[in-house]
Design a binder for these strands. Structure first.
Length: 442
RNA sequence: GGAGGUGUCGCCUAGUCCGGUCUAUGGCGCCCGCCUGCUAAGCGGGUUGAGGGCAAACCCCUCUCGCGGGUUCAAAUCCCGCCACCUCCGCCA
């Protein structure tokens, strides 16, 4: 949710922001009208209610005819109050729907336009040149099979398309990656978290995932519960309805959880392998900080993502996502895309978003800060309560990370060199092909 | 899943039976001031959050006693539903 004051004070700013995302500005006018109607309804109700309370006070002390007259008077007033109250409630509902329909304005630095209008900020490392090494790289599906690491056939048999089993070194790879990620997170001062992946509607709504991504969200039949597509959802709602001590910020969490996505709009895309799946595990960084610090924290999150990719010795680039491709909550988003040799292109491995106070307003997460109190003597300053900023960033999304590692570090015989940083957690330097294939029907 | 209990402004707590100066009591903590060689103690005051009126504020008003309805002129208090926690039983990893 954007700051209502911003909408009221500078609607043209919001109109321009809508245009930058390629969206209509009509919601702005709807929201402004709703705001006016709402305030009128509030004034109506409060005037009647105050009158009712005044009269109500006289009743216990009144006697006889006087009392009867008062009761008669307040009876009709009570009906008016009731009507005004429900009118106010209706006006609030309209207002809430209107203001929530407006996404977070993109940062000035974010490129305008849609999915293809990203800007490449940086390219790190060089894609490995298999041609000059004299062999054709195998894709991760084949490598996964050779290594006994990924079982797609049985995934499909048991759970359907876009499911898989990680087996043997595949499973070990996940644990190693999680350990490596958590080690880095701990060293950077993050609190490690295992987060629930089943949440109530409030959490989903609050993080903006029921807006345009609603089709991608799994709902639990017969229950008011959703499966999260990222632990960002649980971690944002973690402090919902709380007022955090400003001195405790930034609060940094590294959360592990399974993630579930219907991938409704991506039929036919990435149908092979484990690039795009309905379920995967992920370690997500989630930060609560001040609005003033959010932009700098965003850079730090990007830094930690790059550090992790560096440890995996991958070639990647960083892109600045265009406004139209941001989620509704995000003001700015950086994606780290790793080079996938058999696809001949960079694919998103991690992503970090600065959601400023957008999610915090929806989830009612605030901080208590010493007042800036211009002109006032320090001793007169009351602490003030303001929304905080939330940011998130992937440390590692397991399947895609495995894809990048296998394909990038493969050797002609189908074995895979283990990046140095991962060796400690994997207990070996090379992943060797397993003797016998263990495919379906084999 | 069943039975019983609890939920009050950071924490603890009075109030709920029997509706009306409850504009929610007191303590702890915290903040400001006074007093005092220092500290502690003592004294006085302040201390939920949201929204509206306004350019803003000392100001005024409304809402907020787990949440949502209802009854009533009037609800922390009565009624209904829900949620969370505790105890016991059942089930289970």
């Amino acid at each position: 949710m954007i700051d209502p004051r911003l909408l009221r004070d500078d609607p043209d700013l919001i109109r321009a922001a809508q245009a930058k995302r390629g969206l209509s500005a009509s919601v702005v006018d709807e929201a402004l009208a709703a705001d006016e109607a709402r305030r009128a309804a509030i004034a109506d109700f409060e005037r009647l209610r105050a009158e009712q309370k005044q009269l109500g006070k006289l009743i216990p002390r009144a006697q006889g005819d006087e009392k009867a007259a008062l009761l008669e008077q307040t009876k009709t007033l009570a009906a008016q109050v009731k009507a005004a109250e429900s009118a106010q409630g209706a006006a609030e509902d309209v207002w809430n729907a209107a203001i929530r329909a407006i996404p977070n304005p993109a940062a000035d630095d974010a490129p305008a336009g849609g999915e293809d209008d990203y800007v490449v900020l940086e390219t790190v490392g060089t894609p490995r040149d298999f041609a000059s090494e004299g062999f054709e790289p195998r894709d991760h599906v084949e490598l996964g099979k050779i290594l006994g690491a990924i079982d797609l056939e049985r995934g499909a048999k048991v759970s359907g398309s876009r499911f898989y089993f990680l087996t043997g070194v595949g499973a070990e790879l996940e644990f190693a990656l999680v350990n490596l990620a958590m080690e880095q997170a701990r060293e950077a001062g993050f609190t490690q978290v295992i987060a629930p992946s089943l949440v109530k509607p409030r959490a989903m709504e609050g993080t903006g995932f029921l807006d345009q991504a609603a089709d991608d969200v799994y709902r639990i039949e017969g229950e008011e519960m959703y499966l999260v597509g990222t632990s960002e959802v649980a971690m944002a709602a973690y402090h919902s309805d709380e007022i955090l001590d400003g001195a405790s910020l930034p609060r940094r969490y590294a959360a592990f959880s399974p993630c579930f996505r219907k991938e409704a709009g991506s039929h036919g895309k990435d149908t092979k392998g484990i690039i795009r799946v309905h379920w995967f595990d992920k370690v997500e960084m989630f930060v609560y900080t001040t609005l003033e610090d959010a932009e700098a924290e965003h850079e730090r999150l990007l830094g930690w993502e790059k550090e992790f990719l560096d440890k995996l010795e991958l070639a990647y680039r960083v892109i600045d996502t265009a406004a139209g491709d941001l989620g509704p909550s995000a003001k700015r988003k950086f994606d780290c895309e790793a080079w996938i040799p058999t696809q001949g292109k960079y694919r998103e491995l991690t992503s970090t978003s600065n959601c400023t106070d957008f999610q915090a307003r929806r989830l009612d997460i605030r901080g208590r800060f010493p007042s800036a109190g211009s002109g006032q003597a320090p001793e007169q300053r009351q602490p003030e309560v303001r929304p905080v900023a939330t940011l998130n960033g992937t440390l590692t999304a397991i399947p895609r990370t495995i894809v990048a590692i296998l394909e990038t570090h493969q050797q002609p015989d189908g074995s895979v060199r283990v990046p140095k940083a991962l060796q400690k957690w994997l207990g070996r330097e090379v992943l060797e092909p397993v003797a016998a294939a263990t495919g379906l029907g084999g």
